[in-house]
Write a protein that binds this DNA or RNA. Sequence first.
DNA 1: AAGAAATGCTTTTGATTTGAAGCACGTAGG
DNA 2: CCTACGTGCTTCAAATCAAAAGCATTTCTT
Lengths: 165, 165
Amino acid sequence: MTGGLSAEELGAYFALMEVGSLLQYAVDAHLRAEGDLSYVQFQILARLADAPEGRLRMTDLADGVVYSRSGLTYQAGLLEKRELITRSSSPDDERSVIVSVTDGGRALVARVLPGHVDDVRRLLFDPMADGDLAAISEVLGRIRRHMRSTPPRSAKPRAKNRRKG
Amino acid sequence: MTGGLSAEELGAYFALMEVGSLLQYAVDAHLRAEGDLSYVQFQILARLADAPEGRLRMTDLADGVVYSRSGLTYQAGLLEKRELITRSSSPDDERSVIVSVTDGGRALVARVLPGHVDDVRRLLFDPMADGDLAAISEVLGRIRRHMRSTPPRSAKPRAKNRRKG
DNA sequence: AAGAAATGCTTTTGATTTGAAGCACGTAGG
DNA sequence: CCTACGTGCTTCAAATCAAAAGCATTTCTT
């Protein structure tokens, strides 16, 4: 069942997946409880709050937050309904939509951020020893760059269909 | 915007989340292309194939695979329809449902496993240098144990509602 | 300048997931 | 035995998400 990965590699792979998954689950639950925000919604607001003028184009906002444009449109609709963001078409390019955080959006981010940070610290960093952070950062950073630069790999011709399953 | 986490901590946090997310996305895409299996479905089959007699109770299978029982019921229905698994009630406890892999299920796992392993190796382990694996394993393992033993933390009374958002 | 192709977003459709409610079986207390 | 409660799974309703199709605008080609 290990089929080409050593026991240690397999363990590291599973640990990575589980840690990421549990962390997201825990953080998500707390964000909902504190501000009725999903993890994705928090990311959108946080990115906007961090952007130069508090605004970004939909496309630029989508990268890294969600795997489809329609998903962002959906979330933007929800956030706009709650008046946490605003949408307007760009003067430069009539196709583009500019998303801006409202004051309410900034306030909400400010309100949930401390709890979010606490969660991450408690779950992820508390169990780390001296030097762990530097080691992890270096390796994970390298892996991330590698993954980003690796092409999405065309599927082999074996495929017959691929809906969401 | 860092609010209590150093720049390096923040970077490590984001890198961890992104690496886990991209890895799952890539692996998922390949599993679909190779065997029309989602990541969750593959996990279910792989666990069953790895279990003593190729069978497990729903409840035992659910742990770690999915965050709700109903989600497992749904996936089990899909896999059963494809005759990759079988469901039958337990003789010991009439309430329990025993899930078993079929020969077809085992064959499918065997067919997609090499590609899956290749993906993980290429994306996750190729960019690692000597010693990285041991370091990562140790730290991630420790964090995982810590997360598992940390109670789900009751939400603070601040909460008003918490649908899926 | 006209048509073709590309870009940016939304709408639509379908799949997956969750929590709540429901149902069946099992266990404990009187 | 009989009721109350607990457990295991499924059904149901609602939410989220992605791919495909659609529409508008812009850019490229000739």
